[in-house]
Computed example of a mutant assay.
Amino acid sequence: MLAITPLYAAPIGLLFLALSVNVIRQRFAHKVSVGDGGETALIKAMRAQSNCAEYAPLTLLLIAMAELQGGPGWFIHMLAGLLLFGRLAHAYGFARTPQIIFLRKSGMYLTFSALLLASLSCLALAL
């Protein structure tokens, strides 16, 4: 049974929802129904949402598998915390104008660390 991963999946889900609402807001503001209409703010909002959609689901799945395989609780918390803080830092840094490059980069480093460590832990626990 998963006891730890859902604690982190829920706020990441809420972050994705907020990023999605921002895309909708930008579509209304710029009257763009399909595509990006060449609107920089809409393109930025779409990429922030897409970036979250590209990294969060796979990493959460790997963390959940590590938890189900009996990974230590502290390690699952660490992996999920890296992902959560990485996604929050990236989204916040990316959304600002001008962007906060340090937060954007830090967010990606944290996310990549979670993805790498979760992948390796799944392999190690499976063997």
Rank of each mutant, 00 (worst) to 15 (best):
S20W: 06
E54T: 15
S33H: 07
L15M: 10
I63A: 12
M65C: 15
L61N: 01
P11W: 03
Q69H: 12
E39R: 01
L19R: 01
Q49R: 12
I12Y: 01
A66H: 09
Q26F: 01
A10M: 10
I63V: 14
K44R: 12
L17A: 13
I63F: 09
D36H: 04
R47A: 15
I63R: 09
A18D: 00
I63S: 03
I12N: 13
L42R: 02
R27Q: 05
V34W: 08
G38L: 09
H30R: 00
Y8N: 07
M46R: 12
S50I: 05
G35S: 10
F16S: 09
L61Y: 04
I24R: 04
P11F: 01
K31S: 15
S33G: 08
S33I: 05
R25P: 00
L19Q: 04
R47K: 14
P57W: 10
A66S: 15
L58C: 07
E67F: 04
A66E: 15
S50T: 13
M46Q: 14
V34G: 01
A64V: 11
L68S: 10
S20Y: 02
Y55P: 05
K44H: 07
Y55V: 09
E39Q: 15
A29K: 14
L62C: 10
A66R: 07
L14V: 10
N51P: 03
A41I: 00
H30A: 04
K31V: 03
F28V: 04
Y55L: 13
Y55N: 13
V23Y: 03
R25H: 02
L61E: 01
L15S: 06
A53W: 12
L14T: 06
L15Q: 01
L62Q: 13
A53F: 09
Q49A: 07
E67V: 12
Q49M: 06
A29M: 07
R27V: 06
L42N: 04
M46H: 00
L15H: 07
L58S: 07
F16C: 13
L60P: 05
A64W: 14
A29C: 06
L68K: 13
G37V: 03
A29T: 03
N22C: 06
P57H: 03
T59G: 02
A41D: 09
L42V: 11
F16Q: 10
A48G: 15
L15C: 12
